[in-house]
Amino acid sequence: MTAGLLFEIREFSLYDGPGIRTTLFLKGCPLRCRWCHNPEGLDPRPQMIYAESTCSSCGACAAVCPRAEAGGQTPRVCSGDDVCGACAGACPSNARRQCGFRIEPEDAVRAILESRDLFNPASPGDERGGATFSGGEPLAQIDFVEETARLLRGEGVHTAAETCGYASEAAWRRLLGAVDLIMLDLKHTDPSEHLKYTGVSNEPILRNFDILKRSGKEYIVRIPVVPTVNDAPDTIRAYARLLNGAPGLTRVDLLPYHAASGGKYALLGLDPPAPLPERPIPDEFLNLIPRARKIVS
């Protein structure tokens, strides 16, 4: 079974790799980063989400909900492979929506090929676009990613993956073989700090990074610069040691932290993480790390 569980297919995606792209957001992630901006990508099961701000309290959801309780209330959120989605169909104000749908590689490819004309550079200076696997975590659904990427390669479509690198060596090697461009997030250099802020150690990630460096592949490293978490001078120097002279490294993207991007947590019935102080990305990153650039987001 190679169907993937996605939470969005986004066309005209301009910030997930070169050119104009279509991004597949895969649902399910092994990390729990405290600053996660895509919390709907965490749970590897379909979920119903609820936008209180657009809800008109009309009760249409409760009327169709098999899980409605005696008082006629639809659960605020629910998840699982058996979510029925009836409330989303009944809701007149788009307050209830299903997050997560299964799709076969062939169907995903069909959706991606709608944008094919726009992947091609319009003039020699333009970058070639394509498809990006993002998430969530693509490595967590490597069967789907590998098959979809294989079909896309057959169509001549450039592929990229935005990944945290946390997976078995076997899965990692399959991803490297499947896509043209790796965009690897390195969230921290220190294993115990990584564990503290993301819920997992970075040892498998660093091992996979070594494999990547020796693979001969070109790749981009992305660092989400999170105030107080990984922007101390020592950490920046550790990043510099890790990245200086890394073969195949084309660029280091420094992604800014935004406290205000926690809005999606409420949709999932989750409390947003405590905001960290926003501050500019330290210039040391640019001074010490080769080919680093600050990304506006």
Binding site: R10, E11, F12, T22, A111, E114
Partner: peptide, 9 residues
């Protein structure tokens, strides 16, 4: 209210 994938499709 139709959740389109984007401007392309």
């Amino acid at each position: 209210g139709v959740a389109v994938k984007g401007p392309i499709s």
